Simulated assay, not measured.
Amino acid sequence: MSGHTQESFPCGEAVVFTVRGEIDIANATQLCAALLHATDRSECQCLIVDLSKVQFIDLSGVRALYECCRVLTWEGRHMVLAEPSAAAQRVLTALRMDRDFEIYPIVEAALVHTARQRYEEGPITGVCGCD
């Protein structure tokens, strides 16, 4: 796990949100909105963003992740990144995002600190969410 200096929140319920395809200027705003919408339930204390299916991410996508994290932290919630694809990992490493995010090598490792979880798949590429 990266981001060892991060503040931790106790997590009762986590949402695993799988992002697919490309995250760029064309859909970064949608991504942020979809991530925040996935945490609408008051029981959701942790958002785990599964990046395993990301084929490309630019700075707009990075900005969307930071904005979502800022909003959730302000609400007393927690956001972590998990299982970054090779493309996502290159960007995370280049920008040293492990200083700002907890980054787990696999989704299951991110789920260890939660009591319950549900899965969502990001609408960025038209994949439906499910509980």
Rank of each mutant, 00 (worst) to 15 (best):
T114N: 00
T93F: 05
C11G: 08
V15S: 08
F56L: 02
L95P: 02
C130Q: 15
E108R: 08
L31K: 00
Q6G: 11
A109R: 07
I103T: 01
P10S: 00
A28N: 07
T125W: 01
V62D: 07
E120Q: 03
E43C: 06
D50R: 02
L36R: 06
P10Y: 09
D50Y: 00
D40N: 14
L36P: 06
V15T: 11
R20H: 00
S52M: 04
V49R: 07
D98V: 02
D40S: 13
L65Q: 10
I124K: 08
A86M: 09
E102K: 10
E102N: 05
R116L: 10
R96E: 12
F101W: 05
L92W: 03
V112T: 01
R116A: 10
Q55I: 00
V62Q: 09
Q117N: 04
E7G: 11
L81S: 02
S2H: 13
P123K: 14
G76N: 02
R99V: 09
C68M: 13
A82V: 06
L35V: 07
I48D: 03
F9N: 02
E102F: 05
C68H: 13
A28I: 05
G126E: 00
R70S: 11
S42W: 14
A88Q: 07
C11A: 12
L36F: 03
E67L: 15
V19I: 08
G76R: 05
C46W: 01
V80H: 03
L95D: 03
S8W: 15
M1V: 11
L95T: 05
E83V: 03
G122L: 10
F101Q: 10
D131Q: 15
D100C: 11
T5I: 14
